[in-house]
Design a protein around this nucleic acid. Structure first.
Length: 267
DNA sequence: AGCATTACCCGCACGC
DNA sequence: TGCGTGCGGGTAATGC
């Protein structure tokens, strides 16, 4: 469900609700949600009594930092975080709940059960292999050009590879490639310096537009975002390209649905 | 052999 | 009812 702009929005919304709150109890309803520690009992013991000091994001991971340990939450395809009222029973797909010292309950809801949660002293083993943050200074057009040259891979799967660049998902990758006028199957090493500059700018523009619209809400998951109303290509198969009017085409690249304009994005 | 790239697959909800 | 699809990524399989 969430890509970088959605996780960023969730972090921003949760921050004032969570900072300074103490975890009173943790309840795990679907143990496989726990990536670490291994058992719900261990998890609950480690987390209980700890106070949330900060709420932030790295790539698509939501980070809740405590004095003793870091809670990492990855929502994957269908995960969401919501609040239950004091003593409210968990809903159908609530996989884990954290009861706060003000009585409210933070619930991790995840119909598809793909999401994962870690509570670790050191987050490096989970976050260490991630590529640069696309909105940070170390992601430059020069770096992107060199990194593209160093690989021989189609742009779509390469941009989705979190070890290459961290935070892009299926939506923002399609949107960025359309903004840049690049075909999703284009081989990375053939990109010119000018094209790399365009792609760099397009990635940032797509993500920034997503954040400005509180992310995107599609299907039955994630509510509150409005970026879905500004999609140029994603999910618009057969509809006119906003630039040239040609019908948007859908193909499959790397097992992922890929939307592009066959007129604006030539190979 | 050893690295880089690709395919499979995991629950569930929804629309056609 | 049945089938295709999906805001993701770990791991097995394959390619170079």
């Amino acid at each position: 469900m969430p890509e970088l702009p959605e996780v960023e929005t969730i972090a921003r919304i949760l921050r004032p609700e969570l900072i300074g709150r103490r975890i009173v109890a943790a309840q795990v309803y679907w143990p496989r949600t726990l990536a670490a520690p291994a058992t719900p009992a261990e998890f609950g013991r480690a987390l209980s009594g700890e106070t949330i000091e900060s709420v932030s994001r790295r790539a698509k991971y939501l980070l809740l930092l405590f004095k003793r340990g870091n809670l990492l939450i990855h929502l994957r395809m269908s995960g969401d975080l919501r609040f239950l009222a004091a003593r409210e029973a968990p809903g159908k797909h609530d996989r884990l709940t954290l009861t706060l010292d003000n009585g409210r309950i933070l619930a991790f809801n995840d119909p598809r059960k793909f999401g994962r949660i870690w509570f670790l002293n050191d987050a490096a083993p989970v976050l260490g292999r991630l590529g640069p943050e696309p909105l940070e200074d170390n992601f430059s057009a020069e770096w992107l050009y060199a990194a593209l040259q160093a690989r021989h891979r189609q742009l779509k799967p390469l941009l989705l590879d979190q070890t290459f660049l961290a935070g892009l998902g299926n939506i923002y990758t399609d949107e960025a490639l359309h903004l840049a006028g690049l075909h999703p199957a284009r081989i990375s090493a053939t990109i010119s310096t000018q094209e790399a500059v365009r792609l760099h700018q397009a990635i940032r523009a797509a993500l920034t537009a997503g954040i400005d619209n509180n992310g995107a809400s599609i299907d039955w998951v994630y509510r509150g975002g409005s970026f879905q109303n500004h999609f140029r290509v994603y999910g618009r198969t057969g509809q006119p390209c906003p630039v040239c009017g040609a019908p948007i085409q859908r193909i499959v690249i790397g097992q992922r649905g890929t939307h592009f304009c066959p007129a604006c994005q030539l190979r």
